[in-house]
Design a protein around this nucleic acid. Structure first.
Lengths: 333, 333
DNA sequence: CTGTTAGCGCTTTCAC
DNA sequence: GTGAAAGCGCTAACAG
């Protein structure tokens, strides 16, 4: 099928291209009658606006990019969904760019996104001091960093209140009488790791439980790393009666590993995760977790981006730490 | 920062826009020296190609659309990742469009995608007789339907060998001595549902186990529906010693529900799922499942699309049923 | 109310 | 080897 353009409609109706364009936009400097006629003909001819041409003209593509490690990771999957949905409400599309946690790939993908002229970018950088962020600042495109705070005063970010989350999770375990609480911590260089750990320590302190560094174990985010850790602990008969995991994915892995050794949650140990992915994805066992309470990170990111795009030249920086709350399902007894 | 265009580079180097364009494309009708010089200057000036302009000119956007119910569903999350990765290898980007299983939304999103001038579309239609598909055919854009076969001879599709999968899953359970095998079946109007059920029946027949329709229960794909079913069965003391679930997500939900009633997998019943999402996402318990054996559905879809795009005017239709195999992890004893 | 004109940034064809 | 010119389809500014 031939593509129908404004020109075709113009030829058919006898109006000029410009009039057709304005009529289809429902501008009221075109008579109602003409508008109706033109819209009808456009419809008949199966006209679909070529937004590539429009974008070239207006300088806006009405699309944003998501740059993250891997959209098949449930956290990012949910995140992408949230973003796509919110963006849609603003009339925006979403292009996904997976970095697989590689800095080089990340930079390439940032350039790809820029080349596609996305109007804004949501990025979860794979490194703290990321070249990509410097690049994005240079480029002068609106972007929001998510999941990790950022030193610079002039970079947008959205993150959950990690310290409070860590505190709530740990206090929850303590209140159920647990004392030997393992913290399966995230990668050292991720800010959230530090904050969640701080929350953990704060809760211990509040309960006068001495902090024992052997109970904090760093777990890579790669698949299978947590499993090893659990197996090793079991091997050594390391005593613990509860786990606070850096996130729900690590928690799930802990359950899996425990299962392999004949340990059950919550009978053999209680467990709390983080991110509450279970609000969107069923996880085969109930898992207590920490969730942002009002808006989600994805939604907030889009709101910021849209604000920035609207105030093209001088936008306001927004650094948001979202409130969190505990969600209980029964993995703590 | 001001956007750098070919014109800027032309001004700076003294060459014409055209020469710059050709030089950056490394065309060999430009002298090597000039090419080097121009590329260097482009680099210095931080030039990023405006692919919107290029697309308008060439008619190709180098992006494809994924239209599916919901990318936060693990199956589609993995699927999107596969597609994004493969597309990237071809120099393509991916735009996501969530339909939330609503036919109206789906059609809108198809039009959005067409408006964005994607070069091709991978779609998992929410209805069997989808208006969207008719629309896509009209539009003459390459598209691949996934996950469900399609009556029309001239529509591309990729699907797993559902019947074989259903057969392998059920035979696996039978071989472990199970006789009272529940099949948590998918929605009636999804072709895969029928095929997987056929496989189930075939395996029963092979083992001379009479088919009992009470053992096939249709479960909606919405969250929580499977849970109800399991609870009801438990309430009624309906006897079963194994479950073959339509997919891994339903399987996960079954585990969850069973857990709530104090039943464990595999001690209290064995369980097999479908899609093997666990190859990418950890599921807290080991789950036997059915997987496509060589290429994945996502990869194959992209390959087909790229072939269609290349042979712009008269492409070959490709209807592919991918071979499947059983993956065991210990949820069947 | 509608038409005219110009141009977004790139690629392609053809000429020199 | 390089330049000149045209045009992809749309929109914005201005004219009438």
């Amino acid at each position: 099928m031939q593509k129908v353009t404004l020109k075709d409609i113009a030829n058919r109706t006898g109006y000029t291209i410009n009039t057709v364009s304005r009529a289809l936009k429902n501008k009221n400097d075109i008579s109602l009658e003409t508008r109706k006629r033109i819209c009808q003909v456009a419809d008949e001819m199966g006209y679909i606006r070529n937004s590539v041409a429009g974008s070239l003209r207006t300088g806006l593509t009405l699309s944003i990019g998501i740059i993250a490690a891997n959209v098949s990771n449930p956290f990012f999957a949910i995140f992408s969904r949230e973003i796509e949905k919110r963006a849609y409400d603003y009339g925006y599309n979403v292009i996904i760019f997976n970095t697989y946690g590689e800095a080089d790939t990340e930079l390439k993908r940032v350039k790809d996104a820029l080349s596609k002229h996305v109007d804004g970018i949501v990025i979860s950088p794979c490194e703290m001091e990321s070249k990509s962020l410097a690049y994005l600042r240079e480029a002068g495109i609106p972007f929001v960093v998510i999941g990790r705070t950022h030193g610079d005063e002039d970079v947008n970010y959205v993150t959950a209140d990690d310290e409070k989350g860590g505190f709530l999770a740990t206090r929850h375990l303590i209140r159920h009488g647990h004392q030997k609480i393992l913290h399966l911590s995230g990668p050292r260089d991720v800010p959230s790791t530090i904050y969640r750990l701080n929350g953990y320590r704060k809760a211990l302190k509040e309960a006068n439980i001495p902090y024992d560094p052997r109970y904090v174990i760093e777990v890579g985010l790669g698949c299978g790393q947590c499993r090893q850790v659990i197996h090793q602990l079991a091997e050594n008969h390391f005593p613990f009666d509860a786990i606070f995991a850096f996130n729900d994915i690590i928690a799930a892995e802990a359950v899996y590993a425990a299962y392999e050794r004949g340990l059950k949650v919550p009978e053999d140990f209680s467990l709390v995760g983080f991110d509450n992915i279970q609000k969107d994805i069923l996880m085969s066992i109930p898992l207590d977790s920490i969730s942002t309470s009002a808006e989600s990170i994805g939604e907030k990111s889009v709101d910021i981006l849209m604000d920035n795009i609207k105030h093209r030249e001088h936008w306001a920086v927004c650094q948001e730490t979202l409130n969190v709350e505990l969600v209980t399902r029964g993995s703590v007894i």
